[in-house]
Each structure stands twice: as structure tokens, then as C-alpha cells.
Design a protein around this nucleic acid. Structure first.
Lengths: 277, 277
DNA sequence: CGCTGAATTGACTTCGGTCAATTCCTGTGG
DNA sequence: CCACAGGAATTGACCGAAGTCAATTCAGCG
């Protein structure tokens, strides 16, 4: 339990956490499980009573179409909570597949629920993180709905790079992409044939270098500019979170002032706050 | 404050709420504002320190592309929380436009945050609702990325119908659609020209009748079947929510108890639980 | 060293976009 | 009550980005 927890690391990226919040996050994560590249963690429609926190590696979530197609909905990286989709039902809304060798911590839904009670501020923060992921998906929708193939692929590469960079500490522009062109296409709504052609164009334009599974984006700034890419994950606002403090004044209505004047984050001196890390 | 609140109504659709939870929700919503059809509530990029709850009418959220295009990300109906996207930043990630004449209640972000502290169970429920909306957007992504124009339009109509039905108590298959074909196209990634053609095909196939702004879906069941449509909003699981009640029983696991036993919600037996409504 | 799945490439098709001309509606003002 | 203006919808002719099909080529691997 004293180990570092990926979810803890992720959340403390946005907000200095108290010791007790950190403890709670660490103790949430249970059994660790390993998956090989390509292995399926949960099938679409399968019942699940747990979430998974990514401790290493990465994955994607996808749905199967009646007609035989497939849509890759999003990718999951270290620190991400997966299968949050399924929390709204008892069963998974998507198939979760390991893209690379992966370690996951299991997190029972019940325990996740308890977190909201025991650490409301974390609950609110999780809501905020979820909102930022929602926006990231909106960006994807925009990309797929309103831009051409080359732009979609470029945007996807930039997105994956920026996510991997945080977690894997990549230098900046080179990374391994263990996805087939079919996978890429399923993510952005293109056929594998056209993915191949689009990548070729990007390579010939000198924007991207490829060597096997290794991708290098030659000028991240410029490419981002060109396709109007925005990183939605680096920052999540926390100024609206409830003060850390003691339960409060519980009594709902009456007035809706915060219990103690201080607002924002950690308000309570008893709880030492750790540096962001 | 004693009036019915749309958010309250929405949430109690999924879970019987206690009096104090209801009170809290009612007292959250402040000034009521009216917007005419077509009016813009918030601009993309604009700073906001509030959310809006839809009390009547409907709206959509959209983003503008550099090249001049537009993507309509989603629609908002009575009881929906809007601009949750923006909670992750200080500014709105999308433009919010009234589709029909609309009443909104303003809800300051701070007050929203406090809700997580004062009523953790509602916080968790809001997370669940948000997850279901996330899935709805994933469905849209799948539709846009992987199906043809006719299917996209049909799916969109079914989606709008099923949302309106809940709130406006529509009979079942006929509703008013105050959107231009441009709007429809921006929602599903088609040009207005092709929207016109797709609607024509649907009409000629006898699947949809049109009369001005009035749409009638002739056999909802069949059309849903044809395009594999699923309503993602009617149900949200609540079995994982923390018990309303008393803090404690921190059971969790022996060790990591929250710092102070109390916290979380005011839990006492005094709070009667109301039937679903 | 051969197998197998992935990637590449070419020829051809097609769905949806573009452009532009009508037509339709609806609201407005005479 | 009617004429008219202007946006929305419809329709046709044409174009082009991406899909389909299929044949190679390539790369990793037992």
C-alpha cells in the first residue's frame, strides 16, 4: 500500500493532495494484473463490477458494428481510469484491448463509489478529469466529422504522442506505435488502405518519419499548428473544487456558503499538503 | 426555492433522493434566464464561472474550425447540465446556442463543487450521468466514423426524438425539429446538400415523414433496428453509489480510514428517502 | 527459410462534396 | 391581403477524396 499509485500520480498532477487522500487512492487499487499486447481485458457487453487503472502500457477501447466494422473510441495511458463508460450500466460499453504489454490495477466500482463519500474533493476532481476526457473525445469527433484523412491521422499521432510523452517520458517527438494501420483507421474513420496512403503523404512532406513501428514527428509545433491540434489533458482546473476540509456544515440548504470562508483547494491546516511532486 | 428543479427531476429519475438532497439541488440553481431561438448563450473560448441547467427548450454545443467548418458536438435537453466541458478549464470549450426558446438556470461552478462535499452521493451520481453522456458521444463518433450518410441522419433523428420524448412528453414518433439542414449536417459530418438528399431517401423509403419542421418517424422500432440505435440516456446504474447514510462504517479495508470519520454527507436517519417520483 | 499477417500500391468505383440554379417558405411592410 | 425579400431547401451536373478489390512486397518469427 505504500507504493506509488498511478491514479494518485495522475490526480496529484492537477492538485496537491493530502496524505489522507493519497492513502485512500493507494488503498483503492487492488490486485494487479498483467496483459500481453493484443490481449482483450473486457468484451463489449460483458458484465463488470470493476474499473481498471492503467499502471503501465497502453490500451484502447472499441466497439464492433453490426456490419462488421469497428470504431476505436479512445486510448488509455498510464494513470487513466478505464471502463468508466461502463459505470453507467452494469456492463461494459466497449471492448478494452491491450495495445502493448500492460499492467492494470483493479478497482471495484463500490470502492470507487466510496471514494466520493470519503474524499469528496477527489470525487469532484475525478469529475473534472472526466470532463477533460469528454472534450478530448469531442475533438476526435470534430476531427473525424470535419477534416480530411491526412489531418485526421496527423491529429491522432499528435494526440498519442502527447499522451505517451507524459507517462513514458518520451523525449518529445519519437515514439513507438504498436498499432496496425487498421487500428489507426478504426480510430479516425478511414480504411487501412487510406491510412497507408495518408501516412505516405505525411512522410513525403517531411512531417513524419517512420521506421517500422517507430514514429518521429519532425516539427511538433508546426504540425500542431497545421492541423489545429490542442492537448486537452495537461491541465484541469481545480479552482471550483470544494475545500478539502472537514465535513461541513453538512446541512445542505440553509445557505449555500462554504463552511469556512476559504474556498478553493485544501483549506485545512491539519492536513499537510504535499508538493505537486 | 421550493419549486421543482429540472436537475432534481433528472437525477431522481435514476435514484430516489432524500429531502435534503432535493433541497440542495433546488437551492443550487439561481437566476433564471431566457433565450430566444438562435441566441448564443456562451461563445467558445469565453470565460465562464457557471454551468447552466436547462429548464425548458433545447440547445446545442458546437465548435468552429479554422477552415470555416463547424462541428455540432451534442444537444442539450431539459434537465441536462450544459458547459460541463468547460469545468475542466476556466473557459468554455464550445459555443452554446439555443435551438428553440430556452430557459436556463445558472449554477456557479463553486456551488457545483460544494455539492460534491455536501452530498457525495449526488456527486457520484453526477459522475455516472456524465459517463452515460460520454457513451452517447462515443455512439455519435461511431456513427460519424463508420456509417453512411443515411444511417447517420436516421440515427440522429432517433436520438433527438428519444431525448425530446422524455422531456416534452411527445407521443412517440412526431416532433418538431427547429434545426436547419446545415445544423444537422454539422452534427453528423455531412454537407447540407447531402443532408437534403439523405432525408429525401428516408422519406421516399417511407421511414420518415416531413411536413415543414415537423418530423415523424413511422416505425421507430424498425428504424432503430436498421441503424442499430441505442438509447443511452434512459438508464444509469446506481448500485455502485456510496450509501446515502452515515459516514463511516468506513469498512473499506481495515487500514486506510479517512482522516476523520465524519466527512462526507450528513448522514442521519432523519432524512427520509422519497420514492422515485 | 518458409509462413503469415501487415503494408504498399495500382486500377477502378462510389459516396459525398462543390457549385450553382431554382424553388419553397416565412415573415414583413406597403 | 398581397408583393417581395432573404434564408432554407431542393435539385442537377460535375468532381474528388476515400473506399474496394486485388496483387505484390515486406517484416517478423518459429
Amino acid at each position: 500500500m505504500p507504493e506509488e499509485s498511478p491514479l494518485e500520480a495522475r490526480l496529484s498532477q492537477h492538485l496537491p493532495l493530502t496524505y489522507s487522500e493519497r492513502d485512500a487512492l493507494r488503498s483503492l487499487e487492488r490486485r494487479e494484473r498483467l496483459y500481453q499486447a493484443g490481449e482483450i481485458v473486457v468484451h463489449e457487453g460483458e458484465e463488470t463490477d470493476k474499473l481498471y487503472v492503467v499502471a503501465s502500457g497502453w490500451l484502447h477501447g472499441s466497439v464492433q458494428l453490426k456490419g462488421g466494422g469497428r470504431q476505436v473510441l479512445r486510448f488509455y495511458f498510464v494513470g487513466d481510469l478505464t471502463t468508466t463508460f461502463s459505470i453507467a450500466w452494469g456492463r461494459s460499453a466497449a471492448t478494452l484491448t491491450a495495445v502493448s504489454a500492460t499492467t492494470l490495477y483493479e478497482l471495484p466500482r463500490q470502492a470507487f463509489g466510496r471514494l466520493f463519500r470519503d474524499h469528496p474533493r477527489l470525487g469532484a476532481l475525478l469529475y473534472g478529469v472526466s470532463a477533460s476526457e469528454h472534450v478530448a473525445m469531442a475533438d476526435r469527433l470534430t476531427s473525424v466529422g470535419r477534416t480530411d484523412g491526412i489531418t485526421r491521422i496527423a491529429t491522432l499521432l499528435l494526440d498519442i504522442r502527447s499522451r505517451l510523452r507524459v507517462t513514458d517520458g518520451i523525449d518529445g517527438a519519437t515514439f513507438e506505435l504498436p498499432l496496425t494501420q487498421q487500428d489507426l483507421g478504426d480510430a479516425v474513420g478511414l480504411t487501412k488502405t487510406h491510412v497507408s496512403r495518408s501516412l505516405k503523404v505525411l512522410a513525403e512532406a517531411g512531417l513524419v518519419d517512420r521506421d517500422g513501428k517507430i514514429i518521429r514527428i519532425n516539427d511538433v509545433e508546426r504540425l500542431s499548428q497545421m492541423v489545429d491540434f490542442q492537448d486537452r489533458h495537461s491541465h484541469v482546473a481545480t479552482d471550483w473544487l470544494p475545500p478539502y476540509g472537514s465535513n461541513g456544515a453538512g446541512e445542505a440548504n440553509g445557505s449555500s456558503k462554504p463552511a469556512n470562508g476559504s474556498n478553493g483547494a485544501n483549506g485545512d491546516i491539519r492536513h499537510q499538503v504535499l508538493p505537486a511532486e
